[in-house]
């Protein structure tokens, strides 16, 4: 238990959580058919990247550059979510479904 607590606050602990979030995000993107489900997976992947940036900024450099990159990741994720949801709503109006397999045409 003590060992586990020490691991959780080390750089390796942060990297382990980041790796797990990243692979779960990939799993979510690959298996879900629902377009919003794919978006959930992308959010997990972006968060995993932000965790790694923040962890390296603390344990390796001691500077805040990594935190600024993590802030940019967050802003890009927010912009991406807004555009993706607008596309999903548009697609729903066109096809009455948000199944990603139905999105097989490039023009309307």
């Amino acid at each position: 238990m003590n060992h586990l607590m020490q691991f959780s606050s080390s750089l390796q602990g942060y990297l382990a959580v980041g790796a797990m979030l990243f692979s779960l995000g990939i799993f979510c993107v690959l298996t879900r058919k629902n377009a919003i489900g794919i978006l959930l997976g992308i959010e997990l992947i972006l968060n995993a990247a932000a965790i790694n940036f923040v962890a390296f900024s603390k344990f390796r450099t001691g500077l805040i550059d990594g935190q600024i990159v993590a802030l940019f990741i967050m802003l890009i994720a927010a912009a991406e979510a807004a555009v993706a949801l607008a596309v999903i709503l548009r697609f729903y109006r066109l096809k009455q479904t948000i199944d990603a397999d139905e999105a097989s045409i490039m023009r309307n």
């Binding site: 606050s9 942060y14 968060n47 932000a50 802030l71």
Partner: peptide
Amino acid sequence: VAVMFLYAGADFL
């Protein structure tokens, strides 16, 4: 993840 950021010294994040 927010709590993890807090413990990594990223209070603003």
